[in-house]
Nucleic acid binder design. Structure first.
Lengths: 332, 332
DNA sequence: CGATTTTTTGCAACCGGTTGCAAAAAGAGG
DNA sequence: CCTCTTTTTGCAACCGGTTGCAAAAAATCG
């Protein structure tokens, strides 16, 4: 039983439009009127119904925030950054957990029912087709951490995973590793595929290497640990490029359990540069992904699209860099 | 430019009410009519505007999900569980990040503007007064992980933190530790206060102990690490009850860096039993907090309140239990 | 088959706001 | 003080749905 505009109008003895105008900025109201209305509103504890007004204005300030990764701590930081950035701009995140459901249409329908002004897909695993479905449905969308393409069909903000794969390969080769392996995230993830292809295309340019690969079934500590435990039972490689930092840290845990040590017995390079990577007892050599910039840029793009829905799709790709710590042997 | 009910009505050649009724379950529509309308709707790609209907029905199916902890990985799991549970029931989480803002009124106002059907406060740090503000504003609220009280003013679902403190104290004393300390989370957090008071009230019942305490400034790895590093520079205690598992793990990292070992030199007991706690290279002795049950129960309560907003407030407290692993010395 | 009951349908008002338009009020200028 | 502008205000229609009510249609029954 919240207070309505009509009640405020009656108490202030003015028309409903007058009340509406005092709460719409840019509308023409005299100071006298404004004071009268504000007084009445305060007395009654009125605050306008955002949803009702969205009916006529066509904007809800609701933004769908869609993710399918609720196991990788990096995403807690991502959620933190996204929600703050949205809130700072008066936008509201409607969170969608895609963990099981993966059909874009269901999400699109749901978000349209709630008339979201836009949608942010925050996932390094979903294919471009997923976010495309939003665009097709007329929902402004930006795909954060999505697959890089020189001809993107939707706005993409992220990194060039192929290049990261190459960078990892160059780094391992430079350290003199000859038996080199890729321990990827889920095989179906676009980020896994791209890192894989960059990694092996670069390795292919070098001779005398023994290479192999396998995939963890999720971007999570446990999956990395399990997969590394499995690898250790066979003959492990000299160095691994792990799909990301959580996989790396899971792998490190597995290696420690087996009595082997890093970097003496096995080298590890990760990707993300999450907070934990710099703990002294982890001290992970990794590729830094500029998460804050990606989030900030995604939101800027989203905001721009609110005014200009048909904005030409662009890819914003941020450079990554190697962070040298202690899980690879020194340069020879 | 989404399709509206009116357009569907015109295409099907029926009244708008007919269309509305086919999409409202429990409404009386003949099969013939239903088929006609559904056909037209399908042709046009219509789906009803949830916000418009909320105007008359008074329900948005929007639930505010409020948290101020975006640094503790345990909360990623909490978000995962909450969002799934809500989605399974056709409810939508509107995420509120309280990291900076801490005045309840601002959140209350915002969530009322969006006419949420209810609010879940997921925080072990916010005081009961925070959630009370929602109740006072007529917004059904449940405080998950909130402070236990025998006379709760709002629905509270969680654990008895005082009892957990006692449990930790009993465990440490039983292992023969005499120099015992509390490494709490933020001092202002209700969970910290309760764990502290339970811990020391139990210790007080034993003689010959040396006790001390300090607080980390957040429930995060880094804060735990920093605080333990500080403690190690002075004379550390024999055993620590850490505010929660992330603090424990941060502390373990600090201890490892200092060349000391666990449990030989220092004992640690945590609280939460997060996934990482059972990694073999961490192997943290801790107190298990039944997160899934807390979340499930919170949502059940929320759903019940949607039908019965004035339901008498209750506290649902779940028992915790010690999980013995390797960070305390064996029982003597 | 007609009368009676039950089901289905459409009308019109309403939910809580916004907004184009014209009338009313205020200000400017002579 | 009277015009002419400019600003402020209210009316009424509209946004996309829902719902009570009464009329129309269908079903039941003797």
């Amino acid at each position: 039983m919240p207070v309505t505009l009509k009640e405020v109008a009656e108490r202030a003895g003015v028309s409903r439009s007058a009340v509406s105008r005092t709460f719409t900025d840019g509308a023409s109201v005299s100071d006298k009127m404004r004071r009268k209305v504000e007084k009445a509103a305060r007395d009654l504890g009125y605050s306008p119904n955002a949803l009702a007004s969205s009916l006529t204005t066509g904007r809800t300030k609701l933004i769908g925030l869609i993710s399918n990764n609720f196991h990788n701590p990096i995403f807690l930081e991502v959620f933190d950054l996204f929600t703050r950035a949205l809130q700072d701009r008066g936008l509201r995140p409607l969170l969608v957990n895609l963990s099981d459901e993966t059909d874009p249409q269901a999400s699109v329908r749901m978000l349209r029912q709630y008339s979201v002004d836009g949608a942010v897909v925050a996932s390094s695993t979903l294919p471009p087709g997923f976010s495309k479905a939003f665009r097709d449905a007329g929902v402004p969308v930006v795909h954060s951490f999505g697959r890089y393409s020189s001809t993107p069909q939707v706005h993409v903000v992220g990194i060039d995973n192929v290049e990261c794969g190459r960078m990892a390969a160059r780094t391992l080769v430079a350290r003199g590793y000859r038996k080199i392996a890729f321990l990827g995230g889920p095989e179906s993830a676009t980020s896994t595929q791209d890192r894989y292809s960059g990694f092996f295309s670069e390795l292919g340019a070098h001779r005398g290497l023994t290479t192999s690969y396998s995939f963890a079934d999720a971007y999570s500590f446990d999956a990395g640990r399990r997969e590394m435990l499995r690898l250790l039972r066979a003959a492990p490689a000299e160095a691994y490029f792990c799909g990301d930092d959580v996989l790396s840290i899971g792998a490190l845990s597995a290696i420690a359990d087996s009595g082997l040590s890093v970097p003496e017995d096995i080298g590890i390079i990760g990707l993300n540069d999450m907070e934990m990577a710099r703990w002294e007892n982890i001290n992970l050599t990794t590729i830094h992904q500029p998460i804050r910039q990606i989030v900030t840029s995604s939101i800027e793009l989203m905001v721009a699209m609110l005014d200009e829905p048909d904005r030409y799709p662009e890819a914003r790709i941020f450079p990554c860099s190697i962070v040298e710590r202690g899980t690879l042997r020194p340069l020879c």
